[in-house]
Design a protein around this nucleic acid. Structure first.
Lengths: 225, 225
DNA sequence: AACCAGTGTTAACGTGTGTTAACCGATTAG
DNA sequence: CTAATCGGTTAACACACGTTAACACTGGTT
């Protein structure tokens, strides 16, 4: 079993090193970054499984970093570390999409417990990799849709687009967000391409009439069922 | 829209009452229980959506209670409250299957943020939220209006405007308020645009003559039925 | 190398939504 | 009574999106 990689963004070298070593004794692979902007590059290159971000850092702080990462990845668990004890910051942290929040000083054991808790949650989500969409069953890793005993195969793009729609069900999924995430750019052609895939998904989901992919003009799409 | 019910198990009456009242001002329905065994009975009878449990309580403590509830329900979010600051307890809390852990003293705002965070994660589908408007059935998430078996599709703007009218039924819905909320600005053109949508809604609701969107000159509109 | 099947992109055309404009009636202030 | 304002209604318009099909690219097979 390969080690789980954790990205740790902490500007204070001494503290960062201690946390890194502690986590490594627990069999994690730790990428220590001294600043948010370095962390962002490292994130893109190394694809860690979890982020531990200090809020106050030079150049790019933890909140700003989290915001950028959330724009392209809304499932990776994020834990904030902070010396601030104001509730305001906790609130902001959760609003950005952080999953947990630890006030300094904290004990290593507590950090480890929270890391394991979050990892387990995402593991459970992944193990129940079959998502229910109305009377359909959507197997994301296998890229299949089941309805009433029959299976249809989805393509890579179809599956990913549907996955994001499901994750944001009953919420409007922003057009440019998904374009940037799946296509990498948001221009005229990719937008038209996306329209084509929406059409394809609607066709493949038409057996259950209670499922709808609703367009919100100028914003994006909303999956409801 | 029914309120979300939260079960709060806290043996100290003064603290329990304060938390209860604070949560109630945030529009939660709170079941306050003075002990774990009472809480367990209440849980079974009332089926709350989330648990906030004090760890140290007479008769039956929070951990023991959580263990019993987890045995029959492994999805309900659990938040532990404790005066203990030992990491050992945090660890135990997560092991039992708690989702979050707050050390006393904590700020109410922080508790509320964590509650909302957990609820959002396990959000129950609001898609079954069907509002009745006279003899119409209005499904807001699906943007549909049902009357006598037939369905009409509403556009995004129509649905939102109608939603706000319904939420303020029999009350005057302020013009500029709704303009700012739906359009973002309140100028001549958006105001005329809104008039057009009022016309559209009146047309789509004309099957039931008892429904009226009444104009209050200079103020706004009132939906009555 | 030629072929094929599968996937995604581009193109072309059609449809729907929301904004703007124009014209009208109703209400109210002076 | 008259002018000014507000809202009601319809239609024209621009543009975002829907749909279909043709096209191009990829990787595998013969």
């Amino acid at each position: 079993m390969p080690k789980t990689t954790i990205l740790l963004a902490e500007d204070e070298p001494a503290l960062g090193q201690i946390i890194k070593e502690s986590l490594e004794t627990r069999d994690f692979n730790v990428l220590l970054c001294a600043d948010g902007s370095i962390a962002f590059d490292t994130y893109k290159k190394q694809a860690p499984k979890l982020l531990v971000l200090d809020v106050m850092m030079p150049k790019k702080d933890g909140f700003s970093l989290a915001k950028d990462i959330r724009a392209i990845d809304d499932s990776i668990p994020i834990i904030f570390l902070t010396a601030k004890s104001q509730t305001k910051d906790v609130v902001e942290g959760f609003n950005i999409g952080g999953n947990d929040y630890l006030k300094k000083p904290f004990s290593m054991e507590e950090l480890i417990v929270r890391i394991n808790n979050l990892l387990q949650r995402t593991k459970i989500q992944k193990s129940s990799e079959i998502l229910k969409i109305g009377s359909y069953a959507f197997n994301f890793p296998k890229q299949t849709l089941h309805f009433d005993g029959n299976e249809q195969q989805l393509t890579h793009r179809e599956a990913h687009l549907l996955f994001h729609l499901v994750q944001n069900k009953n919420k409007v999924l922003d057009r440019s967000l998904i374009l940037n995430k799946l296509w990498g750019t948001d221009d005229f052609f990719t937008a038209r391409s996306m329209d084509v895939f929406i059409t394809k998904l609607r066709k493949k989901l038409k057996n259950d009439v209670s499922i709808q992919i609703i367009n919100v003009r100028g914003f994006g799409y909303k999956l409801v069922f």
